[in-house]
Deep mutational scan, measured.
Amino acid sequence: EAKQAFKELLKEKRVPSNASWEQAMKMIINDPRYSALAKLSEKKQAFNAY
């Protein structure tokens, strides 16, 4: 599932759970899995759940 892949990406890149969305994006934007969720709102939702 795309959300699961996105959460795994956050874990693998060691994005701190208290990081802001902007900080997290800088760490993950170059990974192909960043595109797993098409909409930015879906990415933010998955990030907030993380």
Score class of each variant (00 low, 15 high):
residue 1 E to G: 08
residue 1 E to L: 00
residue 1 E to D: 08
residue 2 A to P: 03
residue 2 A to R: 10
residue 2 A to Y: 08
residue 2 A to V: 03
residue 2 A to H: 10
residue 3 K to N: 09
residue 3 K to H: 14
residue 3 K to G: 11
residue 4 Q to L: 10
residue 4 Q to N: 01
residue 4 Q to W: 01
residue 4 Q to I: 15
residue 4 Q to V: 11
residue 5 A to G: 11
residue 5 A to V: 13
residue 5 A to M: 12
residue 5 A to W: 00
residue 5 A to D: 09
residue 6 F to Q: 06
residue 6 F to E: 06
residue 6 F to V: 03
residue 7 K to D: 09
residue 7 K to E: 14
residue 7 K to M: 14
residue 7 K to T: 15
residue 7 K to A: 12
residue 7 K to G: 13
residue 8 E to S: 07
residue 8 E to L: 08
residue 8 E to K: 05
residue 8 E to Y: 02
residue 9 L to D: 06
residue 9 L to Q: 02
residue 9 L to S: 03
residue 9 L to Y: 00
residue 9 L to F: 03
residue 9 L to W: 01
residue 9 L to P: 02
residue 9 L to N: 02
residue 10 L to Y: 01
residue 10 L to P: 02
residue 10 L to H: 00
residue 10 L to R: 02
residue 10 L to Q: 03
residue 10 L to V: 02
residue 10 L to W: 00
residue 10 L to D: 03
residue 10 L to E: 01
residue 11 K to W: 13
residue 11 K to M: 14
residue 11 K to I: 15
residue 12 E to M: 00
residue 12 E to T: 07
residue 12 E to D: 11
residue 12 E to N: 08
residue 12 E to C: 01
residue 13 K to H: 02
residue 13 K to L: 05
residue 13 K to Q: 08
residue 13 K to S: 09
residue 13 K to V: 04
residue 14 R to P: 02
residue 14 R to V: 04
residue 14 R to A: 12
residue 14 R to K: 14
residue 14 R to F: 00
residue 15 V to L: 04
residue 15 V to M: 04
residue 15 V to T: 00
residue 15 V to Y: 01
residue 15 V to D: 02
residue 15 V to E: 01
residue 16 P to C: 04
residue 16 P to L: 01
residue 17 S to C: 14
residue 17 S to L: 15
residue 17 S to A: 15
residue 17 S to G: 11
residue 17 S to E: 14
residue 17 S to M: 14
residue 18 N to P: 01
residue 18 N to L: 02
residue 18 N to R: 06
residue 18 N to C: 10
residue 18 N to Y: 06
residue 18 N to D: 14
residue 18 N to K: 05
residue 18 N to Q: 10
residue 19 A to Q: 05
residue 19 A to E: 02
residue 19 A to I: 09
residue 19 A to N: 02
residue 20 S to K: 08
residue 20 S to L: 03
residue 20 S to Q: 08
residue 20 S to H: 05
residue 21 W to R: 07
residue 21 W to Y: 10
residue 21 W to V: 07
residue 21 W to S: 05
residue 21 W to F: 15
residue 21 W to L: 03
residue 21 W to P: 08
residue 22 E to P: 14
residue 22 E to W: 04
residue 22 E to C: 06
residue 22 E to K: 14
residue 23 Q to E: 12
residue 23 Q to K: 08
residue 24 A to K: 00
residue 24 A to F: 02
residue 24 A to N: 01
residue 24 A to D: 05
residue 25 M to G: 08
residue 25 M to D: 10
residue 25 M to P: 08
residue 25 M to V: 13
residue 26 K to V: 10
residue 27 M to R: 05
residue 27 M to D: 04
residue 27 M to Y: 10
residue 28 I to W: 01
residue 28 I to L: 08
residue 28 I to Q: 02
residue 29 I to S: 15
residue 29 I to P: 01
residue 29 I to C: 15
residue 29 I to A: 15
residue 29 I to H: 14
residue 30 N to M: 12
residue 30 N to L: 08
residue 30 N to E: 12
residue 30 N to C: 05
residue 31 D to L: 02
residue 32 P to M: 01
residue 32 P to E: 09
residue 32 P to K: 09
residue 32 P to W: 02
residue 32 P to V: 07
residue 34 Y to I: 00
residue 34 Y to T: 06
residue 34 Y to E: 07
residue 34 Y to H: 01
residue 35 S to Q: 13
residue 35 S to T: 11
residue 35 S to R: 12
residue 36 A to M: 11
residue 36 A to T: 10
residue 36 A to V: 11
residue 36 A to D: 07
residue 36 A to Q: 11
residue 36 A to N: 11
residue 37 L to K: 03
residue 37 L to F: 06
residue 37 L to S: 05
residue 37 L to Y: 05
residue 37 L to P: 10
residue 37 L to Q: 07
residue 37 L to H: 06
residue 37 L to D: 10
residue 39 K to Y: 13
residue 39 K to L: 12
residue 39 K to G: 14
residue 39 K to S: 15
residue 39 K to P: 12
residue 39 K to I: 04
residue 39 K to C: 09
residue 39 K to Q: 08
residue 40 L to R: 04
residue 40 L to K: 11
residue 40 L to F: 09
residue 41 S to Y: 03
residue 41 S to N: 06
residue 41 S to E: 15
residue 41 S to M: 02
residue 41 S to G: 09
residue 41 S to T: 10
residue 41 S to I: 01
residue 41 S to D: 12
residue 41 S to Q: 10
residue 42 E to F: 06
residue 42 E to M: 05
residue 42 E to I: 00
residue 42 E to T: 05
residue 42 E to R: 02
residue 42 E to V: 03
residue 42 E to H: 10
residue 43 K to R: 11
residue 43 K to Y: 06
residue 43 K to L: 07
residue 43 K to E: 07
residue 43 K to A: 09
residue 44 K to Y: 04
residue 44 K to F: 08
residue 44 K to I: 11
residue 45 Q to V: 07
residue 45 Q to D: 13
residue 45 Q to R: 12
residue 45 Q to C: 12
residue 46 A to F: 02
residue 46 A to W: 06
residue 46 A to I: 11
residue 46 A to L: 14
residue 47 F to D: 03
residue 47 F to R: 03
residue 47 F to L: 09
residue 47 F to I: 13
residue 47 F to Y: 07
residue 47 F to W: 12
residue 47 F to M: 03
residue 47 F to G: 06
residue 48 N to P: 06
residue 48 N to T: 09
residue 48 N to K: 13
residue 48 N to S: 10
residue 49 A to N: 09
residue 49 A to Q: 15
residue 49 A to M: 15
residue 49 A to L: 07
residue 49 A to V: 08
residue 49 A to K: 10
residue 50 Y to H: 01
residue 50 Y to R: 11
residue 50 Y to S: 07
